[in-house]
């Protein structure tokens, strides 16, 4: 058992890491997420999954899980002092399919 379906070529990795490393990029993303996403060579399914906060789709196509946790923080925010933040709960719900449309 190891990380399944890891695809290091996916631009989502670069997007999340650049967002972590660049405060200005994070600020621009808050104002105009589409313009920031345009800067990265995301596959259509990557872009859709990011926009729809569909972590399971990203997991299934090979995004590294640790960066999924960071993406969840980018999208949902960091709640200081929270043991079970909205970001982590949203991520796990998505991976388990609990937020899939019925």
């Amino acid at each position: 058992m190891a990380i399944e379906n890891f695809n290091r070529e996916l631009a989502t990795h670069d997007f999340v890491q650049q967002m972590k490393w660049n405060v200005e990029l994070r600020q621009r993303f808050e104002q105009d997420p589409g313009a920031v996403l345009d800067q990265f060579e995301l596959l259509p399914q990557e872009r859709t999954a990011i926009e729809e906060r569909d972590f399971k789709a990203l997991y299934d196509i090979g995004v590294h899980p640790y960066l999924l946790s960071q993406l969840a923080r980018l999208l949902y925010g960091t709640v200081e002092g929270a043991g079970s933040s909205e970001a982590s709960l949203a991520l796990v719900r998505s991976l388990l399919g609990e937020d899939a449309p019925s």
């Binding site: 899980p65 640790y66 999924l68 946790s69 960071q70 969840a72 982590s88 796990v92």
Partner: peptide, 8 residues
């Protein structure tokens, strides 16, 4: 398991 199904 950071970011995985067993994250919590």
């Amino acid at each position: 398991e950071p970011g995985g199904k067993r994250y919590l």
